[in-house]
């Protein structure tokens, strides 16, 4: 009894844990991917509180990223740290030549690509822990959709639905088609839909430009 309580539990086990440090909590990668994300110490709550504080200071936004980055299992950067704020009910455009990074950013914003570090909050939900909830609410269109789907979205927006649409490849078409597509997206944004569009170049329609890597660029400049 005494040995168990005082020697093993109060001395030996803490000592071993202290020696091991974070390695005590190591899991094989395949198992790590499968066990649920336990939030024993309330990290999720901390993230929520932090976001609430940010919202008090800056107001409600659709998407907020602060150094959100994605690194694959080989340690290669898929998405460099991105910092951006997407306002609600507006057309925001990510103009990037690099289609892979652009696709990664848009997939991360739609909850489809789990971020490995940094802050990413979509409609007040913290990623990657609440990815299922984000996926259940956010449209993620890697290619520009046909007119019927856009019309369905417009009618739902008119019915009062709070929509967040992430669409990529707007300018992968002829110039005339590109312009029509941009006008359609502007129309959706005017109906209250929050649209995050990915393109190679900045369009000629009124929009909110997103510059996710502006800080990094500045650093490199300086």
């Amino acid at each position: 009894m005494f040995v168990d309580a005082f020697l093993v539990r109060m001395t030996l086990v803490p000592a071993v844990l202290a020696l091991l440090g974070r390695r005590a909590w190591w899991l094989p990668r395949w198992l790590e991917a499968r066990v649920p994300q336990l939030d024993v110490e309330g990290a999720g709550l901390h993230a929520h509180l932090e976001h609430e504080a940010w919202v008090r200071d800056h107001g409600q936004v659709a998407v907020r990223a602060d150094g959100a980055e994605v690194v694959d299992r080989h340690g290669r950067t898929v998405l460099p740290p991105a910092t951006l704020v997407v306002p609600t009910g507006d057309l925001s455009v990510v103009a990037l030549e690099d289609t892979r990074t652009r696709a990664a950013l848009l997939a991360a914003l739609a909850g489809r690509l789990p971020v490995t570090d940094g802050v990413l909050v979509v409609q007040d939900r913290i990623l990657p822990t609440e990815a299922v909830a984000v996926r259940a609410r956010v449209w993620h269109l890697p290619r520009f959709p046909d007119a019927a789907l856009l019309e369905r979205l417009a009618s739902r927006a008119r019915a009062g639905a709070d929509l967040l649409l992430v669409v990529d490849g707007v300018d992968e078409a002829s110039v005339a088609v590109q312009l029509e597509r941009w006008h359609r997206l502007v129309g959706l944004a005017e109906l209250g839909v929050t649209v995050v569009a990915g393109a190679s170049t900045t369009p000629d329609v009124p929009h909110h430009p997103l510059r996710p890597f502006a800080a990094a660029e500045k650093e490199t400049v300086s």
Binding site: A107, L113, V132
Partner: peptide
Amino acid sequence: ARRAATVTPDDLGAHAEQGSEP
């Protein structure tokens, strides 16, 4: 369905190579 809804970095690679074929 749950797995298919997410994108892996490998998918993005294929994605980028095949244009926009998801």
